[in-house]
Design a binder for these strands. Structure first.
Lengths: 340, 340
DNA sequence: ATTGGCACTCGACGTATCCGAGTGCCAAGC
DNA sequence: GCTTGGCACTCGGATACGTCGAGTGCCAAT
């Protein structure tokens, strides 16, 4: 139904509305875009677009604003993702390049995205369910306090303190260390957890209790997915766009702080495999984020898509910029982490 | 100059204003507090208080609101810190009691404070400048990639990856491990850093480069004060009180995200040694937080005051509740961490 | 299909008005 | 010498109203 020009009008409306925050009228469009037709013609097209529920008028005789559906069409069909400027690309290289470890890299990443997009940014910690145990280290802080350190082949380190009922000497600890490494090393975290549980049965009865404590500690540790954590930055950006939220911004802030909500949302978006995905307005209603849009992209460690990063902002956000920045940073990250 | 009753009036004004968010007039006071005098008398007292700049009128012929100075007097002289309800005390015990490690304990702590006070809460990571090195562990992930793990007697674990120009075999690594432990173990982090630097000179030339890398890595690691990190929770609470900030809440959010600002402020408040300290409104102007008040308390690990926790909120905050909650949680934390 | 014209709508904005809470002051009273 | 009731005064907030203008929908003409 909607003509070629009609879609161009939709694109113009989205762009102008995002830029000006005000309903855009037919006159504004012919002024700011070279359509070569009169305002009346644009009005006819707009009537069509309104019928298709791609745009809406806040009240009779006002300009139009895009609906969620309108944004969807814009994102899917009308926006070409233009690459970042060389300055921005350079910023990514220099700002992320000097990171020393994963924690710092992700912390810098999330701040960078927030800065590039002017939105709230979030990076999901990589889930290491497919990474393998490289080494298990046991350090006695006291005879009955043993620090268990788990090192994976993705360079991740997890530590946990085990409190034992009876003390253990260095020699025994060395034996246990050897045994645990034998059992766990080279396996995925999940496999290692299972194997460790099985190991309990064949344990030297004298150290059963000790081994049990250590094994369950390590097993639990292995079970913990770091993928259930988010790093967030740019809350100030969210507050800055507060007036874009008709309802309160409170729910959004709470959802961000809660993390679980956002993580679920990230999880759902993982279905869309290839590249950047966008979830718009009411599409997020199940998560209590009906007025926000989320732009995310997966990124990979060692070639495996393990996690997501993205931005959260008002439905009326600059999708083009957000998508470009999210895509670029995700790619850079995948490239850097792929070298591991 | 200000009579006994005058101070009582100030207390009433602070309490009513905090509760109602509206300038409080003489009539309201006689209604809600049993002063046994008429509104006219209260008005006389209020004129006195205004002369002393303890209260102010937003405009002619409106009720009065406390000034920063008024809040200061209220906090210092007029508010008795009433202990928490048993339910709240119970909440602290149960909510914090089940924490397994320091990270989780602090994460739970900050959420608890935010919940108890309805303000934004922050906990400074303990600074371990006075804690001692218990153990240094080196783990070769690859011949030229060595993971350095530093364990302190306060149970803190720091890890860092060292990239070496030339590979190192297990045997050499074991020797180095022994040497580093000899040098560093038992010393404070600062001492260890110095000692490690000195050790470089007497190094076996063959491994000079290797040792240098490891030593500087560890030294830098030791130098890093974890006290320069904050855990924050309850941003939603800050947004909820947004209307209490005449200027924008943006600066506050930015300061919180920046962390450095808040950490400096925490540092300054450390001067006031005994228990809860409060910094009000313009007292925070150097930090760009002229409209906010900060309530903090130190807490101790192993008997040493090492860090602070507190809340940040509008000048018009419930100081009594905030102070009580901050004090109670800090005490609980000190008690729990003192057992280490 | 496009266009200019035109009546119509409705929110934004400025002005005038009213209302009431609250003050300051004063003279009278305990 | 405090305290109190009375009273005039002030000022912000709410309400009502008129004006203005951007923008629309529709229609007849091209």
């Amino acid at each position: 139904m909607v003509s070629e020009r009609g879609l161009a009008v939709l694109r113009a409306i989205v762009q102008d509305y995002v830029a000006s925050r005000e309903p855009v009228g037919s006159k504004t469009i012919v002024e700011r875009h070279a359509f070569g037709v009169s305002a009346a013609t644009i009005r006819n097209d707009m009537a069509l677009l309104e019928e298709e529920e791609l745009i809406a008028a806040p009240h009779t005789s006002s300009g139009r604003i895009p609906t969620d559906k309108g944004y969807r069409v814009f994102v899917d069909q009308l926006s070409e993702v233009r690459p970042l400027s060389s300055a921005q690309r350079h910023a990514i290289e220099t700002f992320l390049g000097e990171s020393s470890d994963l924690d710092e890299l992700l912390a810098r990443t999330v701040r960078l995205i927030a800065q590039l997009t002017g939105q709230l940014a979030a990076v999901q910690y990589p889930s290491f369910s497919t990474s393998r145990v490289r080494h298990v280290e046991l350090v006695a802080l006291a005879p009955e306090r043993v620090l268990c350190i788990l090192i994976t082949d993705s360079g991740q380190v997890e530590q946990r303190l085990a409190e034992l009922a009876v003390g253990v000497d260095e020699e025994t600890l060395a034996r246990l260390r050897g045994r645990l490494n034998e059992v766990a090393a080279g396996r995925t975290l999940a496999e290692a957890a299972t194997a460790l549980s099985g190991e309990l049965d064949s344990a030297d009865p004298r150290h059963a209790q000790l081994l049990h404590t250590l094994a369950t500690t390590l097993a639990e540790q292995a079970r913990v997915q770091r993928g259930d954590r988010l790093v967030v930055a740019g809350a100030a950006n969210l507050v800055r766009t507060e007036q874009d939220f008709a309802g309160s911004i409170l729910g959004v802030i709470e959802a961000i702080e809660e993390q679980v909500v956002l993580l679920k949302l990230f999880g759902e978006m993982a279905a869309d495999q290839h590249g950047v995905s966008v979830s718009i307005g009411r599409e997020n209603a199940p998560f209590g984020l009906a007025e926000t849009s989320v732009v995310t992209s997966p990124f990979a460690i060692a070639g495996r898509d393990v996690s997501r990063l993205g931005v959260v902002g008002p439905t009326r956000m600059d999708y083009t910029t957000s998508m470009a920045a999210v895509r670029a940073v995700a790619r850079y990250l995948s490239r850097t982490l792929g070298e591991h």
